[in-house]
Simulated scan of single mutants.
Amino acid sequence: MKVNVNIRRRAAADEDVRKLNSIIIARLSKIDGIFRGDDVQLQAVFDPGKGESAGTYLSPFLVEGIRGGVSYASRTPGAVKDRGTSDDFIYLELDLESLNYNWFVTVVFPVIVEAFGAYRSTVVTDLDQRDDDFNKIVELCRLEKKDLKSRDGVFRIQSVNYFDDILCKRAFGIGSKEVAARLEEHVYVVREIGDGVFFITSDKPVAGPETLIIDKKIKRLLAGR
């Protein structure tokens, strides 16, 4: 079974992406158990791109069962806006035949979130549901004129989630502390980290009808019902 990890941070216009990448890779390299060897900082090659984006491919240095890298949004003058198009992100694919899911989501995932300074992060365990959701999200974004795919809302609660305080207020109308309080005793893990809330809906990857059942339950709790 393969699942996807998407960890997003808001780009800042005044950041030097090459220096930022060095900081991010240094932080990630300190996370136990996800890299082969200790020299990822020296060997991982930063690709500055051609102005529109940049990134570092990490798959050759990641342990068996993890593939992915880091991508940075354009910092060209005027490009950085309060939209998902101005997100930096870490993208990972996990192969659960080779990797312990519970270890990754409870131990590694929150550490990556903090190391990256993320505002929104998910582990998507039902890739078919993600694909089914795509056109619905695009249409809602068009109708509501909001960036519901990233900065303005949450269309689908995933198996593993992190939302910062700003996103919680935009998506749910309450701050991250209140989100944590409403989910207490209703999910597998919930705790405040950084400037937001991290929660896992179940002790195992969720797929099929259970995805929709849990999504509905969490949204009802966050709406105070």
Rank of each mutant, 00 (worst) to 15 (best):
V138P: 00
E192D: 11
K146C: 10
S202W: 04
D147H: 12
V70S: 00
N4L: 14
C141K: 10
K19W: 09
D133L: 03
G194N: 15
G49V: 13
I174H: 10
V111L: 13
T85W: 07
D165F: 01
L20C: 04
I193N: 03
V40F: 00
T122W: 03
V113W: 03
Y162A: 07
Q41D: 03
N21W: 08
D38Y: 11
R36F: 06
S59D: 05
S98K: 15
V154S: 13
C141F: 02
I218L: 11
K217L: 08
N102D: 12
K30H: 09
R18C: 08
A12C: 02
S71F: 07
A26K: 14
E210N: 05
E97P: 00
T85E: 13
Q158M: 14
V160C: 15
D16T: 07
G196A: 11
D133V: 00
D215E: 08
E184G: 00
D32C: 05
M1Q: 09
V189K: 12
G208W: 12
F163V: 14
V107Y: 06
V123C: 13
R27Q: 14
D47G: 07
A223H: 15
A118R: 10
L58N: 02
K204G: 03
K50A: 12
P60R: 04
Y72W: 10
D87R: 01
Y119K: 01
T211I: 00
E178C: 05
F116G: 03
V108D: 08
G37T: 09
V105S: 07
E15C: 00
L99A: 03
R225F: 13
G117P: 09
G194W: 12
R191A: 02
G224M: 15
I34R: 04
D14V: 02
L62C: 02
F198A: 05
R75W: 08
P209H: 04
L140F: 02
F35D: 04
D39V: 00
P77S: 09
D47A: 10
E178H: 09
V190P: 02
I112C: 01
N6A: 09
D203Y: 04
A207E: 14
Y72H: 13
I166Q: 12
N161R: 14
G51C: 07
R10A: 03
I23G: 07
I137K: 10
G65V: 00
P205Q: 12
R67L: 04
S22W: 07
E184Q: 15
T85P: 01
V206Y: 05
A73N: 12
L183C: 05
V17P: 13
K50N: 11
G194Q: 14
R130W: 04
V189E: 11
D164F: 10
K19H: 05
D132G: 00
F198V: 08
F134M: 09
V45T: 11
Y57K: 06
P48F: 11
I24C: 04
K204P: 00
L143F: 01
T56K: 01
A171H: 15
P60N: 05
R27C: 04
L148H: 09
K136N: 02
G78P: 09
P48G: 10
E178T: 15
K177N: 13
I193L: 10
F155C: 02
G224P: 13
N21E: 15
